[in-house]
Design a protein around this nucleic acid. Structure first.
Lengths: 348, 348
DNA sequence: TTGAAAGCGCTACCAA
DNA sequence: TTGGTAGCGCTTTCAA
């Protein structure tokens, strides 16, 4: 490959200074039209490919990109419908602002840290359930704006989250209104470490994942009103995948046939629960009521369709990107959910 | 914000040269352990944040990122299940190679070109149906490896595509085997410009989108065997969204009640067709057979489940990323599809 | 194993 | 409106 043509070559060929040539590309208004054309002609002649991106970045200090980190595992990020919606919102805002989106990907914690350190971005967006981990520390070491989504990160330049407590509370209240009295909670994972299956209320209460803590607290608050204590509730911790929650639900229903209300912490989990219930012959919603949280599209296609607490995930992503790209500092935006009644619940 | 601590500061503080300090971070083996520790200590002391990403990029010429361009509209990319799967495969390979994924996003053609020009990446991946457009020209001007997915781009460093002709042929053959004789084709859009609804065989045959041309050719080839000519077939062009194809299908079935076989060019389109057929009271598969192409997960959840030509989209993405990251030149990988019979077709 | 210095390609400043 | 030039922060070559 022949040596790259650079701006100085073009400038010389056009008989102008390097600075003027630079302006012709970057700030055309500052250059007389005639001269500008001469520069472009020379550029074309020489096969100049336009300003070198990395050199410009170094000089200006702007990367023109927003880093999105999904610490919990990349494969998973592109599987979870909620993460995709988030990405859609982020992409929408970034496109509008002329900024690219960099997905910081990795197979494990250590690689993720390296990925963070190699990413030329202007700000970071972190979506995860966990409050603290090494990746976040690595990001903070870079000293760039960090917006946290769905979790609290100390020192973040901003946070966009859901009113998860209210979401849980309203979900549980709805099932109570429908007449359910024997509850099971299908929880998202409470900590970093994989742990599936039945758990005590205590373990969940000590969850390091904010979302889990809050939603659980909301469930409890509603149920407490009618005298149902945490110890009266069956808790099961699920991987956030429908297959897995289906298996957990099948076991749950076998062991606890009295259950008439399932509180699922995500729609993905709830969908598995509905599938399993139907498979073992439980009638939803007559026999058993199920409610999720999220409002993903797939919830419309279950049999029966899933009742859920809807959140506007796309907007959540968009807001987070907007925060990252402006430099508001330390703000927290809390979004609300709304009850979306479909077929998996009804008053009976 | 205080002036950024740089490598030279650290080197001075540790009493070594800048070069040695650089090696301590980048090539630790080249530096004596004792010296290395002294450098790290100095770095910590001064609050050095590690090598400056952009400066390193400029110096090494490596961006450590792969650009993924979806010219057809970003919003759409994060909505189409096939694009997501592709992204998943790309992410998988990139994560393994320690490379980040940059989504080149934009709202329109012009912004997309700017986005391409601002992206610090080592190679580009382009997924689209269209053979040529200005964005591709912009990418090629950058003179970096360009891998095309699902389309032929002249001068690409590689191409990963499907045997779309065979996919179409086998799809049509399957419906023939099931006894269908009156066909409708629900096509993806044939050109850049929006055009929906009934079309002539001629318009589709002249499609600028390779995928459309090939799949259509495959359908025709199979149907020709039993004496069915293009003019015997009803053609409808659909947006690749289930809602839209459902509407198109409802109109189609109203106008052509004789149709007993629907060849859908994507699963997303096919899903809408199944929904519409059920809604207007047509019995699938007894009355009407439907086959898609892709094999997306949502096809398992339709009623009845969708028969389709399955492709391994994740692997397709992974292969494309692998090609982009190695520097094989000009190769073309063609993947095959396999018939996946589910409920929307049966011999009758 | 370490030091010295060049230079990646550009933009932004200041002076003309 | 244009020219000249410093310097963004680093890695790498070459020499010691």
């Amino acid at each position: 490959m022949a040596k790259r043509v650079k701006l100085l070559d073009v400038a010389k060929a056009a008989g102008v200074s390097q600075g003027t040539a630079s302006n012709a590309f970057g700030k055309p208004d500052l250059v007389r039209a005639e001269v500008r054309e001469r520069i472009f002609a020379a550029a074309k002649e020489l096969g100049y490919r336009g300003p070198h991106v990395m050199a410009r970045m170094l000089r200006t200090g702007k990367a023109g990109a927003l880093g999105v980190v999904f610490p919990d595992n990349l494969e998973y990020a592109f599987t979870d419908p909620v993460a995709i919606e988030l990405l859609r919102g982020i992409g929408r805002e970034c496109a509008q602002q002329g900024v690219n989106v960099m997905i910081i990907s990795a197979e494990n914690q250590q690689q993720a840290i390296a990925a963070v350190n190699n990413a030329a971005v202007d700000a970071f967006l972190v979506h995860c359930y966990s409050d603290n981990n090494d990746i976040i520390a690595a990001i903070q070491r870079r000293n760039q704006p960090l917006i946290s989504i769905d979790t609290d990160i100390e020192g973040a330049a901003g946070t966009v989250a859901l009113n998860d407590f209210a979401a849980g509370q309203n979900a549980a209240q709805h099932l109570l209104d429908c007449g359910a009295r024997k509850f099971a909670i299908l929880s998202l994972q409470a900590t970093e470490h994989d742990h599936f299956g039945p758990v005590t209320a205590g373990r969940l209460g000590a969850a390091s994942h904010r979302v889990v803590r809050e939603r659980l607290g909301g469930y409890y608050a509603a149920l407490k009103q009618v005298g149902i204590a945490p110890t009266d509730i069956v808790h099961v911790e699920c991987d956030n995948q429908s297959d897995h929650s289906a298996k957990m639900t099948a076991e749950l229903l076998a062991r606890h046939p009295e259950i008439d209300g399932i509180l699922a912490m995500s729609d993905v989990i709830a969908i598995g629960a509905i599938d399993a219930a139907r498979a073992v012959g439980r009638k939803v919603p007559d026999d058993l009521k199920v409610i999720g949280i999220d409002g993903i599209a797939a919830g419309e296609r279950t049999d029966p369709p899933l009742t859920t607490m809807y959140q506007d995930t796309v907007e959540k992503g968009r807001l987070a990107a907007e925060m990252a790209l402006s430099d508001g500092s330390g703000k927290t935006i809390t979004l609300e959910t709304s009850l979306l009644v479909r077929g998996s619940s009804k008053v009976s």
